[in-house]
Design a protein around this nucleic acid. Structure first.
Length: 241
DNA sequence: GCGACAG
DNA sequence: ATCTTGTCGC
């Protein structure tokens, strides 16, 4: 079955046309959310991707530094990384994070020499009031499998208390729907919240995230992407200042 | 009107 | 998100 062209190819937001205002972004969300594929539509995952951005705390120019890293899925060894810097987009607004981060992430993705089979994104995917967390947003725009791994809850509640041991998990429920899973990845650390981004089911997402853990609270791909984005920002500041 | 609110 | 070194604890 042929899949519809990517949002990028279709000229949908974040690519050719980016919203300049929050109101405009909100109007664009339903069309993007409708393109999310919540089932497994991916091949063997050999190259893992990680995505994150770093910003200055108070920045009138609204500069975002994005990093995309790739790792060998089996060994979790780093393969490559790429960065991109964009400015003048939307500020951080809960629920509209994708519009702020995706443009720079797409640019970083395009700079990667080898494309990841699946991307772990720092932030929620489906666990979002409009079903369009940054992980879904990025996945739809690139038409690539993505998973959201967030460090705190945007919407919903954890259905049951989590045990202290790594691997403990419980559904993240909102309005009677299971949007994701709270997962304890490390003893003594707060859980992370896993939700689907695009072209992956929740059970598969959970399995892949657990396979990407290497003893830290965050899976390796997003952990490395976080580091890379931070370095990119610091280097840019040093070079500009 | 009040409280919540990824990064 | 970011400001930030050492330090308390398993």
């Amino acid at each position: 079955m042929p899949r519809p062209p990517s949002a990028l190819a279709a000229g949908l937001p974040t690519g050719p046309a980016e919203p300049a205002t929050a109101a405009e972004a909100r109007r664009l969300q339903p069309a993007l959310a409708a393109r999310v594929v919540a089932e497994d539509a991916l091949g063997a995952v050999r190259v893992l991707g990680g995505a994150d951005v770093s910003t200055l705390r108070f920045d009138p120019t609204r500069t975002v530094h994005a990093a995309m890293v790739t790792l060998d899925a089996a060994s979790l060894a780093p393969l490559a990384e790429a960065g991109a810097t964009r400015r003048g987009g939307l500020p951080y607004i809960p629920g509209l994070l994708g519009f702020r981060e995706v443009p720079a992430l797409v640019e970083a993705f395009q700079a990667l020499p080898v494309k990841p089979d699946l991307i772990l994104v720092d932030g929620h995917g489906l666990a979002h009031p409009k079903g369009l967390g940054v992980a879904c947003h990025l996945g739809v725009v690139l038409d690539r499998p993505t998973i959201g791994v967030a460090k705190s809850i945007l919407v919903g509640d954890v259905a049951a208390p989590l045990g202290p041991e790594p691997g403990a998990q419980a559904p993240l429920v909102w309005q009677g729907r299971v949007l994701g899973v709270a997962l304890r990845t490390r003893r003594g650390a707060n859980p992370v919240y896993v939700s689907i981004g695009h072209r992956v089911s929740l059970p598969t997402a959970l399995r892949l995230v657990q396979a990407a853990l290497r003893g830290g609270r965050l899976p390796e791909p997003t952990r490395l992407a976080h580091r890379a984005a931070g370095r990119l920002r610091l280097a840019a500041q040093a070079g500009a200042g």
